[in-house]
């Protein structure tokens, strides 16, 4: 991690007074325990115990108000793997994820490269492109529901103006999921763009200067300097986008409620519906555990390459 200017200043100012000899700590371990205790208690009570609880509940038939919660073994999982609605939800979620990876990440990279040219107005451009990131999913979902309105929406007005056939967007089972994905790409581009931009700013100027001296043109500099040095950032963006997109829920709730005819059911939407609408909490927990296993697998992939960071 590069040091901030402030830190370097502090270090310079103090360097005259610092001794390297180790000063014995007068405190016992106890003050460290006091410092870390609140967070550890929260971890345990809010994350760890419920996490283990999810596995436990998934092995039971669990209605929240019932007197008993009969143990059913792996029945919930067996039922899950035979449940066409669940498979449909997995396929929808995977398709949504794929759309984000294929469209969102390359566009974000392209925009970051353009912003990195330091043109006049860069601050304005980046500010505008980042705007959807700071607004919430509920807000953008409602705004886009209006844009997608088949009769009065902006998108069909544009399609009509250029002579293309108009679509029913969220109201047709063949386009609803794609419409949600399109909006999500729109909202998420700025997020990935800023991460790419930070990665680009981290590449030392010397490399480019040396390449210019050697006569490398713009494309060659991109191909042989930027792209290889940006590899860790790119991979990071891919994995984070993937993990994020597997949790898609709010847009679906606000825009389509899973419809039409379940064409926009996602894993988390189905989880919410079984757990908190039908109150089949054992079955919902089985869905949650499967979601965890998927995201965990993706995270392992991320951890593995995390250490692969290029040092400049």
């Amino acid at each position: 991690m590069a040091e901030s200017h402030g830190l370097q200043r502090v270090r310079r100012r103090f360097s005259g007074y610092l001794s390297t000899e180790h000063v014995e700590s007068t405190d016992t371990d106890l003050s460290w325990y006091a410092i870390i205790l609140p967070k550890v208690v929260l971890f345990a009570a809010i994350l760890l115990v419920p996490f283990i609880g999810a596995f436990y509940i998934s092995l039971h038939e669990w209605a929240p108000l019932a007197q008993t919660h009969p143990f059913v073994g792996l029945d919930n999982y067996v039922r899950l793997f035979q449940d066409p609605v669940f498979w449909n939800a997995i396929i929808n979620t995977a398709g949504y994820s794929l759309a984000l990876l294929v469209f969102d990440v390359p566009i974000a990279l392209g925009l970051a490269l353009l912003l990195n040219m330091n043109l006049r107005g860069t601050k304005f451009y980046s500010g505008a492109i980042f705007l959807p990131v700071v607004t919430s999913w509920v807000i953008v979902s409602l705004i886009w529901s209006w844009l997608y309105n088949p009769e009065y929406g902006l998108l069909n007005a544009i399609l009509g103006a250029v002579g293309l056939p108009q679509l029913s967007w969220l109201q047709s089972s063949s386009t609803a999921l794609a419409s949600i994905a399109l909006m999500s790409i729109w909202k998420h581009i700025g997020f990935n763009m800023v991460i790419f931009l930070a990665g680009l700013k981290g590449i030392p100027d010397d490399y480019y200067e040396a390449a210019i001296v050697d006569g490398a043109n713009r494309w060659q500099r991109f191909r042989y300097i930027t792209l290889p040095l940006l590899k860790p950032t790119t991979f990071f963006v891919f994995i984070v986008t993937l993990i994020f997109s597997f949790r898609v829920y709010t847009q679906v709730y606000v825009m389509t409620q899973g419809g039409p005819v379940r064409s926009t059911y996602t894993i988390v939407y189905y989880f919410w519906q079984t757990g908190f609408q039908e109150f089949e909490m054992g079955y919902a927990s089985a869905i949650a555990v499967v979601l965890f296993l998927i995201v965990f697998g993706l995270s392992i992939l991320q951890q593995r390459t995390w250490g692969d960071d290029v040092e400049y």
């Binding site: 371990d29 460290w32 325990y33 870390i36 550890v40 971890f43 009570a45 809010i46 994350l47 760890l48 115990v49 419920p50 996490f51 609880g53 999810a54 509940i57 929240p64 993990i243 597997f246 949790r247 829920y249 988390v268 989880f271 757990g275 908190f276 909490m281 919902a284 927990s285 949650a288 555990v289 979601l291 965890f292 995201v295 965990f296 995270s299």
Partner: peptide
Amino acid sequence: FKGKSLVYTLVIGTLVIPPQVVLVPLYLE
């Protein structure tokens, strides 16, 4: 202090849990 690496493992471990996974038990809690 003793147990530091255990706490750190806990932090890294809980980092990968999607929050949705804990919702049902947390709701009951």
